[in-house]
């Protein structure tokens, strides 16, 4: 299948292209087949949402893009992760280091854990400037300027003062802004944001999302927004990939997912979400995600699916087009 069609017209250069990725963790007596079939692509200037519930493999996907899963812990029986045309899974350590330190940046859910408590914000950001490829050289003055610019970019008033703060002197929202500042300080092409607002209060989350959105737009980066909330994905992204149990079950332009969800899982997820307009919450989805040690042989959603038939038990559906640019992996659309 060609994943490029997912987004209809693609405006920029293809940055990341994950094709039919399977990733299994090695566990005692076998494998945990965590990623089953992940196909995803992002182009420059595009914002993509990766949506799914706890344990669906979102974070594993992000980790595999960054190549930060220790080598002895997993196998990749199938699939490729092309970053600008080169397969990350087959890069050597040097190339991988280059990609990690100079091309892709990541923002984590817990800003407190991403910052070192014993160094000031300024010291940590100066290090990023020094070791990044663009900050080459030992020009401290130039590094300092880069840092202050970055802090200014995330709308923190008085960057000179914040420069000398320790992380624990900052609120959660401020810490997350600093993490964003660090991530965009040097020129990066791809940003992976793993639930950046989830640990924050809703009003603060709204601010962080706004800043993230503006920066990604202004710098013409590609963004992969990992989130469990369809609402967050709807507000921030151009297209959405819905993940269930290690499989991308549906992908479409953002508006399309909400207008005409095709996969039963997406439909269930939308029905379960409480609405601001009221009207009660519908049933939700019964059951829980399968055991990755011995997942269902057919469709992984089949045990929880109300539409499942005999074919779903036996055979795993591959993504089919529901509409142009809108794909879902289901036999019963």
């Amino acid at each position: 299948m060609s994943s490029g069609e997912v987004n209809g017209e693609v405006n920029g250069e293809r940055i990341l292209d994950i094709r039919n990725l399977k990733l299994w963790y090695k566990v005692y007596k076998g494998y945990a087949r965590v990623l089953n079939d992940v196909t995803l692509s992002v182009s420059r200037g595009e914002k993509v949402g990766l949506v799914g519930e706890t344990g669906c493999g979102k974070t594993t996907t992000a980790k595999s893009i960054l190549g930060i899963i220790p080598e002895h812990q997993y196998v990749v029986p199938e699939g490729e992760i092309y970053y600008k045309g080169k397969d990350i899974l087959r890069m050597n350590a040097k190339e991988l280091g280059q990609v990690r330190s100079g091309e892709i940046s990541m923002i984590y859910q817990e800003p407190a854990a991403a910052l070192n408590p014993v160094f000031t914000v300024g010291q940590q950001m100066m290090d990023v400037a020094r070791y990044s490829s663009q900050g080459a050289g030992k020009n401290r003055k130039r590094h300092r300027e880069m840092v202050l610019d970055a802090i200014r970019d995330v709308f923190i008033p008085d960057p000179e003062r914040i420069f000398h703060f320790y992380p624990n002197q900052l609120s959660g929202g401020m810490k997350q802004r600093i993490c964003i500042a660090m991530a965009i300080m040097t020129r990066r092409d791809l940003m992976i944001a793993d639930e950046p607002g989830t640990a924050l209060d809703v009003t603060i989350q709204a601010q962080v999302h706004k800043i993230l959105n503006e920066l990604v737009n202004r710098r013409h980066m590609a963004l992969i927004m990992i989130t469990h909330s369809l609402g967050v994905a709807r507000e921030l992204t151009d297209s959405i990939y819905v993940m269930y149990a290690g499989t991308v079950v549906e992908s479409a332009p953002s508006a399309e997912i909400f207008r005409r969800p095709a996969h039963p899982y997406t439909i269930g997820l939308l029905a379960a979400a409480p609405r601001l307009s009221g009207g009660g919450i519908q049933s939700g989805i019964y059951g829980s995600i399968p055991d990755y040690g011995s997942p269902p042989p057919g469709c992984r959603f089949e045990p929880r699916c109300s539409r499942a038939g005999a074919r779903c038990k036996a055979e795993a559906p591959s993504p089919r087009e529901a509409e142009p640019g809108h794909q879902a992996a289901c036999f019963n659309m």
Binding site: A206, H209, G231, V232, A273, L276, S277
Partner: peptide
């Protein structure tokens, strides 16, 4: 402010912000 900050999933809800 609180209500307007909530990420929502439909235009109908958006109108309530």
């Amino acid at each position: 402010m609180l209500i307007s900050s909530i990420p929502v999933i439909s235009d109908e809800e958006e109108a309530l912000k």
